[in-house]
């Protein structure tokens, strides 16, 4: 069971949260200009990092806020949490805006 630190509520059990997958997948600015392969990249292709991964969590059974986290996908250790719209606290592979 993961112990997850919500930026608003502090440390809570994983069962209070929903997972939101990879973070920083920016919505296309001009959807009407996108080619099919750009759509495929936005909708389906994923970084799926082995190592420090930037991801989204939703505190569903708490404050009901979304936030970002950096977590190692082998050790499951949380390196840090930060609010939506913010840059990751440490620059890591797979966490940059694309």
């Amino acid at each position: 069971m993961l112990l997850i630190e919500c930026p608003w509520c502090g440390k809570r059990h994983e069962t209070e949260f929903r997972y939101g997958g990879e973070a920083h997948i920016a919505r296309p600015e001009k959807p009407e200009d996108l080619s099919d392969s750009e759509w495929a990249n936005f909708l389906f292709m994923r970084t799926n990092t082995k190592g420090v991964f930037a991801e989204r969590w939703y505190h569903a059974n708490g404050c009901r806020q979304w936030f970002n986290a950096l977590r190692h996908t082998v050790s499951h250790e949380f390196i840090g949490v930060y609010k939506m719209g913010e840059k990751p606290p440490v620059s890591v592979q797979g966490s940059e805006d694309r």
Partner: peptide, 9 residues
């Protein structure tokens, strides 16, 4: 969650 850790919660 995404993982390569071969264990779950």
């Amino acid at each position: 969650f995404n993982s390569y850790g071969q264990r779950g919660s």
